[in-house]
Design a protein around this nucleic acid. Structure first.
Lengths: 199, 199
DNA sequence: CAGGTTCTGTACAGATCCATCCAATACTCG
DNA sequence: CGAGTATTGGATGGATCTGTACAGAACCTG
């Protein structure tokens, strides 16, 4: 073998993910990706084939990074069903304020951004997002069913309906954050949503 | 005066709005706008100055078109507070399925799409969207306060908090629709959200 | 009908975009 | 240490993008 890479592929992927996350797919040029990753064009194309492929990998990585902690929260048998959802909402608020753009405004959630900007035109992105959605709905159902059993979640509606409601609420919180809502507003949205879940 | 236009400016604006709505700002080229409106470049630039200006006008028109019927619903004194919100949700579902792309998939809501794709980079678009948000929150508060008085809306939380929750729910429904949710799912999300508003 | 003005289609300019090519470099392995 | 290979930077290609320039057609007004 020969000359090894001088950069870390995973770090580069993270940087690219961040760029797509903050600016969207179309508005992120390959030049931007070079600057974000610190790599030259050759290194990028040599490693990631194309802008589209790089995006696909960045999105997959984003989903992977986000879903593990969510799964941990939603499957946490120590907590009641309602507490798991509350914790998930709290985490959503936190991540929304942990990751901000250069100007301090919210960059939202790459999955939501991709659904809105790209999913209609990009079947691969749509498939990734759909897979993530199915997984998350499954985890939500687990938590909600646990809540129905432990009495913290209403039995008025079935777990699948509630799961889709919780998922939509998270999406709504992320859009609200990008529209300028501050932390207190996001928390009040989450608190209000929990009212719909109580017995 | 001299040669009059052979096209209707408002119709052209509607067509451009539809194009931006379906494909987003960046992914809609001036060529696309020519084809969507049926106009030549000269006519477009002569009438609308630039792509960005055309987008601004298209967004303003979208907001104008959407807000009037919403205001009518939310200020309808014939209905209880809760019924007004229910009607707003129903309208949201309907519009989501009235306006679909060529492939039949949802194109969402131009306002939400703009918040996600553009608001961070485009102060003018952000201002339009923010103005619309303020207006809608005001209308929602009116309906929710009416509901608190007529006993159909909880007094557990203040009207502003509930307004932001309802607004987030609508955003979440729109994102869900773009992610592939069908009508029944959207309706169940709306029904569940209403549970949080009841006394 | 003629004069003046606006509209419209085509061509073009300049920038930018994604991607590739190639030579020079830097490293590993025999 | 030398041969071979992968990486790297920079130049380059071809396509597309936004916006402009210009000439001729179309129309209103007097």
């Amino acid at each position: 073998m020969a000359r090894p890479r001088t950069f870390d592929e995973e770090r580069a992927l993270d940087a690219a993910m961040r760029a797509f996350w903050a600016n969207g797919y179309e508005a992120t040029s390959t030049q931007d990706l070079c600057e974000a990753t610190g790599l030259g064009r050759s290194s990028i194309y040599n490693t990631f084939t194309s802008k589209h492929d790089l995006f696909r990998r960045a999105l997959a990585r984003y989903i992977e990074l986000m879903s593990a902690p969510q799964a941990e929260i939603l499957e946490d048998a120590e907590r009641s069903g309602l507490e798991r959802i509350r914790a998930l909402f709290a985490r959503t608020v936190d991540t929304e304020f942990d990751h901000r753009g250069d100007d301090g405004s919210s960059i939202g959630c790459l999955t939501v951004n991709t659904v809105v900007e790209l999913a209609r035109r990009d079947p691969e992105a749509a498939a990734l997002v759909e897979g993530d959605l199915d997984l998350r709905l499954g985890l939500l159902r687990v938590a909600l069913e646990a809540g129905r059993r432990d009495g913290t979640i209403t039995t008025r509606r079935d777990a699948d309906t509630l799961a889709r409601f919780v998922n939509a609420t998270i999406g709504g919180m992320r859009v609200s954050a990008q529209a300028g809502a501050d932390r207190a507003v996001l928390e009040s949205i989450a608190d209000t949503a929990l009212d719909a879940l109580r017995p």
